[in-house]
Design a protein around this nucleic acid. Structure first.
Lengths: 230, 230
DNA sequence: GTATAAACGTGAGATATGTTACATTTGTAG
DNA sequence: CTACAAATGTAACATATCTCACGTTTATAC
C-alpha cells in the first residue's frame, strides 16, 4: 500500500463533480485528501468500521461487499474509476461503513475527508447537484439488480452480468472477468457450483468462450435473449 | 383527486430538509408547488413518463412499482409520509420516471417543480446535504432488500416484510397490511400462491394471526428467528 | 340484492437450484 | 521445481419454489 501526498489543484483525474470547483475550493479539498494505491485483494475499508472519508476511485476495480445472513458475502456492485464510495456517510446519523470495499485489480483511490467534503457541498450547490446525480446513477443500477436478481433465473442473471461487464465495465469484447466463480456467485446470489454449471452450458451452446479468465462473447444476440427471459 | 392551492410558507407538514429553508426560499418552493389528494389505487405518476416534479408524500402509503421482465411488476418499496419520490430526476440525463407510484391508502402529496427544487439545492447547501441524507436512508433500505431477497428463502423474506411493516411503517402491533397477496408477492419476488402458503404456515405455527387484512404478530421472537435464517 | 370481477386457498406435479462429495487444475510461496 | 492452498469441474441427490388447475370467498358496480 503506497501513500502519495498530492495536490488536488493539479490533479489530472478530477471527477465531473470536482471539476466544478474553483481554485479556492480545490484547496479545501486538498487539505483532507490523500491518494493511496491498493494491490489486488487488499481491503480498502471494512463494513462496520467508522467512516471518516469519502473514497474516490481514480483507477481500478473495486468490489463492494456486504455480509448477509450467516455471514455469507454478497457483492453489492463492482465499481470502477470515477466512482465515489461511502457517500452514505454524509448522513450524520450513520457514520459507519455500510459495506466493505476490496480492490479487485490494482486500484488507486483518494480518501477525501468527510467534513471537508460536506463543507464543499454546503458552499457550492452546483457541486452538490452533480454529486446527487452520480449517486442516482449508482442507485439505478441497484434498482436494476434488485429487480433482476429477484425476477430472473440464474441463466438470465449470469447473462446480465456478462453483458454488464463487457459493455459497462470494460467496453471491449474479449475481456478479463477478474472475478473468481465464488465472486460471481456472490454477485448474482447463488452458489459457486451453479455458476460453474451455467458457464459450461453457455460454452456448450457456443454463446461464450472462456479460457483462463479471458472471456469472449461469441453470440451476443443469444445472450441478450437469455437475459430477457430464457 | 382533489387539488388545493396552498402555501409552503404556512405549511404545517414540512419535511426535515424543507424546514431548513428561510422565508424567501419557501416562496421559491411555493411557486412550483401543488398539493393533491389521491384515492386508494390511484396512479400518482407512471414509469417512463417525463418527470417534471419531485413528489413529497405528506401523508399516506405509496407503492413504488417497476416493471421487470415480461412486464411482471416488482414493488421497489412502500413509502410513507415524509418521503421524497423522484429525486432521481434531478439528474439532468434521466428525466423520465424510473418507476410508477401508486397510492396504497388515501394519500396527500405535494408536487414540487423540479427546477425550483434544483434552484434551492443550488442556493442552500445545508438543504442539499439534508436531502442527500434522506436519499441514503432510502438507499440503505434497498441494499438490505437486495441482500435479503437474494440470500433469504421465502419464509425469511416474508418474516422480514411483516416485521418491517409492523415496526417501521405502522409502529403498532395489530396492524392493517393494506396490501393484497399479489402485492406482497411483488414485494418479495415470488408468486401469490407461495405467499399464501407461507402465511398459512405462520398462522398454523401460531406466529401470526390474520383476520381480513388485520394482522397480529403473536410470537415476535420466532419471527425474528425465521428472519435470521429459519 | 344481484351480478361480475378480483382476490384468495390449496393440491399435485414439474423444475431450478442448493447441497454434498470428490477429483482435478491452477496459482503461489519458498 | 516443489509443495500446499485456493480455485474449479462435475455428478447424484435433496428440496424449495413455480406453475397449473380449480373451487371458494370477498369486494365492487349497478
Amino acid at each position: 500500500m503506497n501513500i502519495f501526498y498530492n495536490s488536488c489543484v493539479d490533479c489530472t483525474l478530477k471527477s465531473g463533480a470536482v471539476s466544478l470547483l474553483d481554485q479556492k475550493e480545490l484547496c479545501i479539498l486538498e487539505e483532507g485528501c490523500s491518494k493511496i494505491l491498493f494491490h489486488k485483494g487488499e481491503l480498502i475499508f471494512k463494513e462496520g468500521s467508522p467512516a471518516k472519508h469519502i473514497t474516490y476511485i481514480r483507477d481500478g476495480l473495486v468490489k463492494l461487499v456486504k455480509k448477509g445472513i450467516g455471514g455469507k458475502d454478497f457483492i453489492l456492485s463492482i465499481s470502477k474509476g470515477g466512482s465515489y464510495l461511502g457517500l452514505q456517510n454524509l448522513n450524520r446519523d450513520t457514520r459507519d461503513n455500510y459495506f466493505s470495499a476490496i480492490a479487485v485489480t490494482p486500484t488507486e483511490v483518494c480518501f477525501l475527508d468527510i467534513d471537508c467534503f460536506a463543507k464543499l457541498l454546503d458552499q457550492n450547490g452546483s457541486f452538490a447537484i452533480k454529486v446527487i446525480s452520480t449517486i442516482f446513477n449508482d442507485e439505478m443500477n441497484y434498482f436494476e439488480r434488485l429487480v433482476n436478481n429477484v425476477q430472473q433465473q440464474l441463466p438470465g442473471r449470469l447473462a446480465n452480468t456478462l453483458l454488464y461487464f463487457c459493455k459497462e465495465v470494460y467496453g471491449q469484447n474479449p475481456f478479463n472477468l477478474n472475478l473468481t466463480m465464488v465472486e460471481v456467485a456472490a454477485l448474482i446470489g447463488t452458489s459457486r457450483e451453479s455458476v460453474s454449471r451455467i458457464f459450461k452450458e453457455f460454452q456448450d451452446e457456443g454463446i461464450i468462450k472462456s479460457e483462463k479468465k479471458q472471456i469472449t462473447i461469441l453470440d451476443e444476440a443469444k445472450l441478450e435473449k437469455i437475459r430477457h427471459k430464457g
